[in-house]
Amino acid sequence: IGSLMYASIFGNVSAIIQRLYSGTARYHTQMLRVREFIRFHQIPNPLRQRLEEYFQHAWSYTNGIDMNAVLKGFPECLQADICLHLNRSLLQHCKPFRGATKGCLRALAMKFKTTHAPPGDTLVHAGDLLTALYFISRGSIEILRGDVVVAILGKNDIFGEPLNLYARPGKSNGDVRALTYCDLHKIHRDDLLEVLDMYPEFSDHFWSSLEITFNLRDTNMIPGSPGSTELEGGFSRQRKRKLSFRRRTDKDTEQPGEVSALGPGRAGAGPSSRGRPGGPWGESPSSGPSSPESSEDEGPGRSSSPLRLVPFSSPRPPGEPPGGEPLMEDCEKSSDTCNPLSGAFSGVSNIFSFWGDSRGRQYQELPRCPAPTPSLLNIPLSSPGRRPRGDVESRLDALQRQLNRLETRLSADMATVLQLLQRQMTLVPPAYSAVTTPGPGPTSTSPLLPVSPLPTLTLDSLSQVSQFMACEELPPGAPELPQEGPTRRLSLPGQLGALTSQPLHRHGSDPG
């Protein structure tokens, strides 16, 4: 009997000691992992102490058991019943959930998450997105703005933001810190809205009876308010094209079509300037034949640059190039080494500058006005007194259609001029006259002087055409309008007829 009692007592005591040691061994194993994590990542002392304290409290609170892992091991129907039991206190005593059906309560219970916070733990920081609604079931918390405590909340209090009033989550206007050990039930806004969409009859009752104890939403960050730039940057990543407008005076608003859609830094370009900076079609017209890549860069430059609305530039004389043409100036200075066709295309550029300027006046029909002061630039669209967005969009579309028509007509005119030049060069190729044979009589004449090349004649003739079109064909006081194609086609051969009437002889060394 004594040996039996000794064996039973010894066996029970050893089993008890073994169970104690097993729990202690698990605790030390998990604690060792936490300390190894702290050492590996070199976490500083204040945060390291918070980690160790939280682990110790969580171990004593749950005995080292992962409740979520245990809950996920059950089937979904059983999980709903378990969640309904775990959140029964909240669902029974909170006013917004009263009167809900059994199915609605089960769906809500599945969406709730339980959070346990030790003292000093910050649940929400200032500036964080308010993605959830919090219900306090135990403990107390404090809300701070800077170093000032603005509120202390306790059991059955609710904090967050009214989700039904805002389409997008706002930002917190303060820090939420736990004063004691707290148990909180939180539900994400997407989950709550999903359940309320499934039960629309409960939705009206819920929003009407929901009383948020403390609204954390920062009202200064609401979209459309003066301080909402940061919020707009976070939620409006896919922005449309940006529009900046110059201020319109009362006198300017009476004149229709007073602005032109141009790229940034293009205030001095012609009315047909689009795409790359520098001139019509993204580059100076005089350098068009020598740089074919300008047409390839036109599309990307047009689509990537934001639109700006600026006044037209001052008018340019008909014979003056659009500006920024070092290529043609070098050719004029060193005409001995340049291609003979460069002079002809220089005359073509003069005609283009004249036609572009006159067509700009035809479509816009307003006098040039000086540029406004820099303080009046970049007025935002949302400022008071601005035109409605639809009106601005319609004006932009009208300007775009005008620019497209202008570009089409300029292309047709350019093709006409090039065809005339090619026809003239085919009839009378460039050549130098040879020395004529002296006559049989004693009164022999001296050799004839060489005839100037055709490109120079073409430049003079085209300059005469531009001056003739600019000065004589337009009646005084009438708006400057571009001439039609047949009129220009008839004027060019008439001007060139006198020049080509002389018999030109080919030089023996000319390969053409």
Score class of each variant (00 low, 15 high):
residue 127 G to F: 01
residue 127 G to T: 01
residue 128 D to T: 03
residue 129 L to W: 06
residue 132 A to T: 06
residue 132 A to M: 12
residue 134 Y to K: 01
residue 134 Y to T: 07
residue 134 Y to Q: 03
residue 135 F to W: 12
residue 136 I to D: 01
residue 137 S to D: 07
residue 137 S to L: 04
residue 139 G to R: 01
residue 140 S to G: 04
residue 140 S to R: 11
residue 141 I to W: 01
residue 143 I to Q: 01
residue 144 L to D: 03
residue 144 L to S: 12
residue 145 R to N: 15
residue 145 R to Q: 09
residue 146 G to E: 11
residue 148 V to E: 13
residue 152 I to E: 04
residue 153 L to P: 01
residue 157 D to T: 03
residue 158 I to Y: 04
residue 159 F to T: 01
residue 161 E to M: 01
residue 166 Y to H: 12
residue 166 Y to E: 12
residue 167 A to K: 07
residue 171 K to W: 09
residue 171 K to D: 01
residue 172 S to L: 03
residue 172 S to P: 03
residue 172 S to A: 10
residue 174 G to D: 03
residue 175 D to Y: 07
residue 175 D to I: 06
residue 176 V to I: 03
residue 176 V to L: 02
residue 177 R to Q: 04
residue 178 A to K: 01
residue 180 T to E: 06
residue 181 Y to A: 09
residue 181 Y to G: 07
residue 183 D to T: 13
residue 187 I to T: 01
residue 188 H to V: 09
residue 189 R to N: 07
residue 190 D to W: 08
residue 190 D to A: 08
residue 191 D to Y: 01
residue 196 L to W: 03
residue 196 L to V: 04
residue 197 D to Y: 08
residue 206 F to T: 02
residue 209 S to T: 14
residue 210 L to C: 10
residue 210 L to S: 03
residue 211 E to K: 09
residue 213 T to H: 03
residue 213 T to W: 01
residue 215 N to A: 04
residue 215 N to D: 04
residue 217 R to A: 08
residue 219 T to C: 14
residue 220 N to P: 15
residue 221 M to I: 06
residue 221 M to A: 08
residue 222 I to S: 12
residue 223 P to W: 06
residue 224 G to V: 10
residue 224 G to R: 11
residue 224 G to H: 10
residue 225 S to P: 14
residue 227 G to K: 10
residue 227 G to A: 12
residue 228 S to F: 12
residue 229 T to D: 12
residue 229 T to I: 07
residue 230 E to M: 11
residue 231 L to E: 12
residue 232 E to K: 10
residue 232 E to W: 06
residue 235 F to R: 11
residue 237 R to I: 13
residue 238 Q to H: 12
residue 239 R to T: 09
residue 242 K to E: 11
residue 244 S to Y: 14
residue 244 S to V: 12
residue 245 F to G: 11
residue 247 R to N: 10
residue 248 R to I: 10
residue 251 K to S: 12
residue 251 K to L: 11
residue 251 K to Q: 10
residue 251 K to G: 09
residue 253 T to P: 10
residue 253 T to N: 14
residue 256 P to H: 09
residue 256 P to C: 12
residue 256 P to G: 07
residue 257 G to N: 10
residue 257 G to C: 12
residue 259 V to D: 10
residue 261 A to V: 12
residue 262 L to C: 10
residue 262 L to W: 13
residue 263 G to T: 10
residue 263 G to Q: 14
residue 264 P to R: 10
residue 264 P to Y: 09
residue 265 G to S: 11
residue 265 G to M: 12
residue 265 G to V: 09
residue 266 R to M: 11
residue 266 R to A: 13
residue 266 R to E: 13
residue 267 A to W: 07
residue 269 A to Y: 10
residue 270 G to D: 13
residue 273 S to I: 14
residue 280 P to L: 12
residue 282 G to N: 12
residue 284 S to R: 06
residue 285 P to T: 11
residue 286 S to A: 15
residue 288 G to R: 11
residue 290 S to D: 03
residue 291 S to F: 15
residue 292 P to D: 09
residue 292 P to C: 08
residue 292 P to G: 08
residue 294 S to P: 13
residue 296 E to G: 11
residue 297 D to I: 11
residue 297 D to K: 11
residue 299 G to S: 13
residue 299 G to N: 03
residue 302 R to F: 10
residue 302 R to L: 09
residue 303 S to H: 12
residue 303 S to N: 13
residue 304 S to W: 13
residue 304 S to M: 06
residue 308 R to C: 07
residue 308 R to T: 12
residue 309 L to S: 07
residue 314 S to E: 12
residue 316 R to H: 15
residue 316 R to E: 12
residue 317 P to C: 04
residue 318 P to R: 13
residue 320 E to L: 04
residue 320 E to C: 10
residue 320 E to V: 13
residue 322 P to T: 04
residue 325 E to M: 12
residue 327 L to A: 13
residue 327 L to K: 15
residue 328 M to K: 04
residue 328 M to D: 14
residue 330 D to W: 02
residue 330 D to Y: 08
residue 330 D to N: 08
residue 333 K to Q: 09
residue 335 S to R: 12
residue 336 D to R: 08
residue 339 N to A: 13
residue 340 P to R: 13
residue 341 L to M: 10
residue 342 S to C: 10
residue 344 A to R: 08
residue 344 A to K: 09
residue 345 F to T: 13
residue 347 G to R: 11
residue 349 S to W: 04
residue 350 N to G: 11
residue 350 N to P: 11
residue 351 I to P: 09
residue 352 F to L: 10
residue 354 F to K: 13
residue 356 G to Q: 07
residue 357 D to P: 12
residue 358 S to T: 11
residue 358 S to E: 14
residue 358 S to G: 08
residue 360 G to W: 15
residue 361 R to Y: 09
residue 362 Q to H: 13
residue 362 Q to D: 13
residue 364 Q to S: 12
residue 364 Q to D: 04
residue 365 E to K: 15
residue 366 L to Y: 08
residue 370 P to M: 07
residue 371 A to D: 09
residue 372 P to M: 10
residue 374 P to G: 09
residue 374 P to K: 12
residue 375 S to F: 07
residue 376 L to G: 10
residue 376 L to V: 06
residue 381 L to M: 11
residue 383 S to F: 08
residue 383 S to A: 06
residue 384 P to N: 05
residue 387 R to L: 13
residue 387 R to I: 13
residue 388 P to K: 14
residue 388 P to R: 09
residue 388 P to T: 08
residue 389 R to Y: 12
residue 392 V to S: 03
residue 393 E to A: 06
residue 393 E to K: 06
residue 395 R to F: 08
residue 396 L to M: 05
residue 396 L to D: 04
residue 396 L to H: 04
residue 397 D to T: 09
residue 398 A to I: 10
residue 400 Q to H: 01
residue 400 Q to N: 05
residue 402 Q to R: 03
residue 403 L to C: 04
residue 404 N to P: 03
residue 404 N to A: 04
residue 406 L to W: 15
residue 407 E to R: 04
residue 409 R to Y: 03
residue 409 R to S: 08
residue 409 R to I: 08
residue 410 L to I: 08
residue 411 S to G: 09
residue 413 D to K: 15
residue 414 M to N: 11
residue 417 V to G: 01
residue 418 L to M: 03
residue 418 L to Q: 04
residue 419 Q to K: 06
residue 420 L to E: 05
residue 424 Q to D: 06
residue 424 Q to G: 07
residue 426 T to K: 03
residue 429 P to E: 08
residue 430 P to G: 10
residue 431 A to E: 12
residue 432 Y to K: 07
residue 433 S to D: 09
residue 434 A to G: 08
residue 435 V to G: 11
residue 436 T to P: 13
residue 437 T to F: 10
residue 437 T to V: 07
residue 437 T to N: 12
residue 440 P to T: 09
residue 441 G to W: 10
residue 441 G to I: 05
residue 442 P to C: 08
residue 442 P to G: 08
residue 442 P to T: 07
residue 442 P to N: 10
residue 442 P to I: 05
residue 443 T to Q: 12
residue 444 S to L: 08
residue 445 T to P: 15
residue 445 T to D: 12
residue 446 S to C: 12
residue 446 S to W: 15
residue 446 S to Q: 12
residue 447 P to D: 08
residue 450 P to Y: 12
residue 450 P to Q: 06
residue 451 V to M: 12
residue 452 S to N: 13
residue 455 P to W: 06
residue 456 T to Q: 12
residue 456 T to R: 10
residue 456 T to C: 12
residue 456 T to I: 07
residue 457 L to Y: 09
residue 457 L to V: 10
residue 458 T to G: 11
residue 460 D to E: 12
residue 463 S to E: 10
residue 464 Q to G: 11
residue 466 S to L: 06
residue 470 A to G: 12
residue 470 A to V: 13
residue 470 A to I: 11
residue 471 C to W: 01
residue 471 C to V: 10
residue 474 L to C: 11
residue 474 L to D: 13
residue 476 P to L: 11
residue 476 P to G: 10
residue 480 E to D: 15
residue 481 L to Y: 15
residue 481 L to D: 12
residue 482 P to T: 13
residue 486 P to R: 07
residue 495 Q to V: 10
residue 497 G to M: 10
residue 500 T to A: 11
residue 502 Q to R: 12
residue 504 L to P: 05
residue 504 L to S: 10
residue 504 L to F: 01
residue 506 R to I: 10
residue 507 H to A: 11
residue 509 S to P: 09
residue 511 P to H: 09
